[in-house]
Design a protein around this nucleic acid. Structure first.
Length: 270
DNA sequence: CGATCTACCTGATGGC
DNA sequence: TGCCATCAGGTAGATC
């Protein structure tokens, strides 16, 4: 599922393939994908505009256009952005096609949780504006301060207004690396534990980006070119229930915590 | 404030 | 073979 490393991988592909290129036309199909405003705002508003830059904020992709408009994309669970040639057949669940002349950018999303919307020059966006710090930019002291709340540490790491970009896969991997249980109160972590969590956040996310993210058995996530990521082979606990813990050898466990699965080692994580 | 629950949606999977 | 229940999880909103 697209979390920070997957979204960052797509961002890099978008900037490389579409930076400086002009949208000839756009087609939006399906009512749910563009749901914040009429689809004409994209179809008519972005026609003829050129991509200046592609940025990422948390799990949001932000495409800056030469008009000052920004095309915002959130992949949610099953959204994919794909680079294709114009003549390639439109696959099922394709909800948006941006034609750049020699190539197309297509948004494919079976579960239609993902969304596209456009923001005018300077227009605020509550969804983006309320996002918390970027995990790879926040300093150690600021990160430690964020944890001074009486909430389950996993819930806090998943809380986008606190820290933007972590999802279920990477929180489980981070907590394992830091040897901290998901259900610990965030403000009960020792200095050493906070330090390990901070270090893990940097190393795990950086390596995951280098390996172009994680693709699971369902291959819901692939990059712009349809390639799966390779970080899943480095997962220590996520989707490894029953396999030996890489640290102590006891079986990795899975439990439902706050309505989602949590993978952990009951021996190594305290 | 924080925890819990639900809705959104399709495809894959497993049991019978 | 088919049918049905279950599960996957990012975000928003209701409720306790």
């Amino acid at each position: 599922m697209p979390e920070l490393p997957e979204v960052e991988t797509v961002r890099r592909g978008l900037e490389r393939e579409f930076g400086g290129r002009r949208i000839r036309s756009a087609v939006i199909d399906g009512a749910r994908t563009v749901r914040r405003h009429p689809p004409e705002l994209i179809v008519d508003g972005l026609r003829g505009r050129t991509v200046i830059a592609v940025r990422r904020r948390g799990k949001y992709l932000i495409v800056d256009m030469d008009s000052g408009d920004r095309l915002v994309v959130h992949l949610r669970m099953s959204g994919q952005l794909r680079l294709t040639h114009a003549e390639e057949p439109i696959v099922k669940h394709t909800h948006a096609v941006f034609d750049f002349g020699d190539r197309q950018l297509r948004f494919v999303d079976p579960r239609t949780f993902g969304e596209l919307f456009v923001l005018g020059d300077g227009e605020p966006c509550a969804s983006i504006d309320r996002l918390g710090v970027e995990p790879l930019d926040v300093g150690r002291a600021d990160f430690a301060a964020l944890l001074q709340r009486r909430r389950f540490v996993k819930a806090l790491l998943l809380d986008q207004p606190t820290i933007a970009g972590l999802g279920n896969i990477y929180t489980d991997e981070l907590l394992f690396a830091a040897r901290v249980r998901a259900d610990r109160a965030a403000d009960s972590l020792s200095r050493a534990e906070v330090g390990r969590l901070y270090e893990a956040m940097g190393t795990v996310l950086t390596e995951a980006i280098a390996l172009r993210g994680s693709s699971l058995y369902d291959a819901q996530y692939v990059d712009l070119y349809g390639r799966p990521g390779e970080f899943q082979v480095r997962h220590q606990v996520y989707a490894r229930e029953g396999e030996p813990c890489p640290r102590c050898g006891r079986p990795v466990r899975r439990a439902v915590f706050q309505q989602r699965s949590t993978h952990f080692c009951a021996t190594c994580q305290r």
